[in-house]
């Protein structure tokens, strides 16, 4: 990419190093690039907060209220991108899903096929859990639902830990460890189904408070 103002080359940084004008967001920039931190599962949360605050101030559209239209637009774009990067990276679950996507496995894809994605035994277990929860809901037995939620929460955290370990191994291998990538995908799949279950219990609690 070249700077729209001085034509020198720009990188992932939000400002042109040569003339200091706001740069366009490079296509393919990752959230890690946007926030200016190295790609990894274990993010320095303090550094994330600092980078976010600093960049938010520098990029804030108010600072460009009197700049030319091009910079005003870029300030908006950069701020939107920064907010999205911060939102995804600060949450360990979202960060893990995002890293998995950067490694080429997108569990968010709407047209994703369901075949072969999770072992049948796991899906059977999820079905049984959801059926038990439905019974508890029909019986208005909030205690039973919350007891199940406690167990599922433990398993969700376990699965997240396994996903994080697998992602670390994948990143440490420089993107070559196919087995680690598969383990990460399966573990995050489990996280997704357990999270869905916990959302259902939360909805039931809200109903009960009604």
């Amino acid at each position: 990419m070249t700077c729209w103002n001085c034509q020198s080359a720009t990188g992932a940084a939000p400002f042109c190093a040569a003339c200091g004008k706001l740069a366009a967001r490079p296509p393919g920039a990752t959230h890690f690039d946007t926030i200016g931190l190295p790609r990894g599962m274990d993010l320095d949360v303090g550094a994330l907060e600092r980078q976010y605050r600093e960049l938010s101030l520098k990029l804030h559209p108010d600072r460009f209220a009197h700049a030319d239209p091009r910079e005003r637009r870029l300030s908006l774009e950069q701020t939107t991108g920064l907010n999205e990067a911060y939102k995804v990276l600060k949450e360990p679950v979202r960060r893990a899903f995002y890293l998995l996507k950067l490694e080429g496995v997108d569990l968010e894809r709407e047209d994703g096929s369901s075949r072969g994605s999770m072992p049948l035994a796991f899906l059977e277990e999820v079905m049984a859990l959801r059926e038990r929860l439905e019974e508890a809901r029909e019986a208005k037995d909030l205690d039973a639902a919350q007891a199940m939620a406690g167990e599922v929460l433990t398993r969700q955290q376990e699965a997240l830990g396994q996903a994080q370990d697998a992602l670390r191994a994948r990143l440490a291998s420089g993107g070559t460890d196919a087995d680690a990538l598969q383990r990460a995908g399966l573990a995050l799949g489990r996280v997704r189904y357990f999270t869905r279950f916990l959302e259902e219990v939360a909805a039931m609690e809200e109903e009960a408070l009604g």
Partner: peptide, 9 residues
């Protein structure tokens, strides 16, 4: 079957 995008079965 399950939907990995939403966690439904």
């Amino acid at each position: 079957v399950g939907a990995p995008a939403c966690g439904d079965v």
